[in-house]
């Protein structure tokens, strides 16, 4: 069944809030076992997607599935961990109390991991949550998500507002956890560098729709910048090859940004340029180009 291979799946997902379509036919597929980075501009629909997946908001139309089950099913959340972007927990409880509160909901709670992360994150047991710094609250939220033996972890901007050292701690905890426990991670982020670092899949959403999605290595392979230098003025040419994102003409230089290197190379060579240079495109550029071309 397709659903077994997909930890998260949405098909033609629409969500309307007060007359505004936050999601407009979103198709998302997150393969089981992957670490998937979810990128998009502010207001593109990242948080809305996550809310629909976790049953916090109801889809206006379309399908949303988590681990094969409908997103509105409360029971599937027993296998899912979540860290929100606000990382707000119960202010009036202490660290110990919120762990004690969360534990009984998850029969597969790992007390060994709880001990490990309490120490590793240096969480002060009797301290009130309202007295914790943002970084410590993030680590606490992470502990609460990681100890439940979840099959899927969903994080909304996990390192937002954290200094680089804390951010690295969080990423390391994630990567370390994924290395030893089988799980899928789906995290939204504005930090392209961290997505580059730990994700093996990405999904870029813009204005409520998916614009780029797939394995990161694959995308890096196929997305290329091809620079053609001509002896005389560069020709004005319309490329027929699929996947051409942007063509810039500057004197004798034609620069083509493409998602599909191979078809373009064939066409480019036929133009008989003086030289062809191919250079890789960074994820940042892939992102910027993908969300800009819709303008």
């Amino acid at each position: 069944m397709v659903s077994d291979r997909l930890a998260i799946e949405t098909v033609d997902l629409w969500k309307r809030y007060d007359g505004i379509d936050a999601l407009r036919g979103l198709d998302l597929q997150v393969p089981t076992g992957s670490i998937c980075g979810f990128l998009g501009r502010n207001g593109a629909g990242k948080t809305t997607t996550i809310k629909v997946l976790l049953g916090m908001a109801k889809a206006t139309r379309g399908v949303a599935r988590l681990l094969g089950a409908p997103a509105v099913d409360a029971e599937v959340r027993r296998r899912v961990g979540f860290v929100s972007d606000e990382k707000d927990l119960y202010d009036y409880m202490t660290v110990d109390e919120i762990i004690a509160f969360t534990r009984p909901f998850f029969p597969k709670w790992r007390t060994d991991l709880e001990q490990k992360y309490r120490q590793k994150f240096e969480l002060p047991g009797p301290r009130d949550i309202k007295d914790l710094s943002r970084g410590t609250r993030t680590k606490l939220a992470l502990l609460l998500a990681l100890c439940r033996s979840a099959d899927l972890l969903i994080l909304d901007e996990p390192t937002a507002g954290l200094d680089p050292a804390m951010a690295e701690d969080v990423l390391q905890a994630l990567v370390g956890h994924v290395a030893s426990e089988e799980m899928t991670v789906f995290f939204s982020s504005h930090q392209i560098a961290e997505v580059d670092q730990i994700a093996d899949h990405i999904a870029i959403v813009d204005r409520g729709r998916m614009v780029v999605a797939g394995a990161l290595d694959d995308l890096r392979d196929r997305f290329q910048r091809v620079q053609l230098v001509f002896a005389d003025a560069a020709p004005e040419v319309r490329f027929h090859a699929p996947g051409v994102v942007r063509v810039t003409r500057d004197g004798r230089v034609l620069t083509v940004l493409t998602r599909e290197r191979e078809p373009l190379m064939t066409e480019a060579k036929a133009l008989l340029p003086a030289s062809i240079e191919v250079s890789p495109v960074t994820l940042k550029e892939i992102f910027l180009e993908s969300v800009r071309t819709e303008d």
């Binding site: 707000d88 909901f105 939220a141």
Partner: peptide, 13 residues
């Protein structure tokens, strides 16, 4: 206050 999302992410209806 912000903690609703944590509550709603729990496996409870």
């Amino acid at each position: 206050k912000g903690s609703a999302l944590f509550t709603l992410s729990l496996p409870v209806t």
